[in-house]
Amino acid sequence: MTPSTPVDARSPDPADTSLRNAATADTGVDLPPVLSLHNVHKSFGETAIIRGVDLALREGERHAVIGPNGAGKSTLFHLISGLIRPTSGQIFLGDRPIQGLDARNINKLGLARSFQITNLFPGLSVYENLRFGVMRRHGLQYNFWKPISRYRAVAAQTEELLEELRLTRHRDTLGGELSYSEQRSLEIGMALASDPHLLLLDEPMAGMSREETEYTVGLIRELTQGRTLMIVEHDMDVVFSLSDRISVLVYGQVIATGTPDEIRANVQVQEAYLGAEVKA
């Protein structure tokens, strides 16, 4: 995670990035951004991982964050979702500042995330894994006087989600006994179960085969209808086909934000990261 020293050549002063400025300017026009980051910094001791990120997500867009290993993509997700606190800067969900809130309160404001490393309830059934998310939607938490089976709506919505994730036949399988790609689907499903306004997916396709990836892309497309999506992904085909806009994170700074075409054409991005991969 330690950034090497020659960063100046790669990450110009944020003000120079005309693309990004244009993009942020756009968001202000009709709808306020769903999520916005203002000059967010995060350091672990001496090591600065996030060095002044500005970012704005538009209502309903699919926004990808790409960048080389160690650029701070996962850290950025952790900062937004409340796993860790920023050293400085502001994060707004809609118009509410959320920097420093804990993960639970951020989730209650309508933000859910999945994890890069599968993070489910391995000893419980798939159904139960999803039901925890659906229960939250109904505010069921400290209830110890009514059996969960009596909440018809919870059961119906959980079944519906199983159907959408195409996991119905694994309804009673333990989470830990699913195949890897099914676990990844469940991981996405658990984030979706609380019916978030904004969904953060951290490398949902990591470690998947070609077919599994295609399948999951379809799933994400389907499931994120009507929501705002922020996704970290390494697979460039996925990123360019799935997202409306892309932000490029290099050594803790966003060097460009724009549509896939704009990012493909951006010289700095090509130099810094994409290089031959995009030209090919």
Binding site: L83, K108, F121, M135, P147
Partner: peptide
Amino acid sequence: RTPLGRLCLGLRENSNRLPFMGYSVHAL
């Protein structure tokens, strides 16, 4: 069989995930 009783199993299985689903682990 109740919601709290089910979440009790969630505490055992993976209490790190529960905050990201909107639950307060300490209160549970």
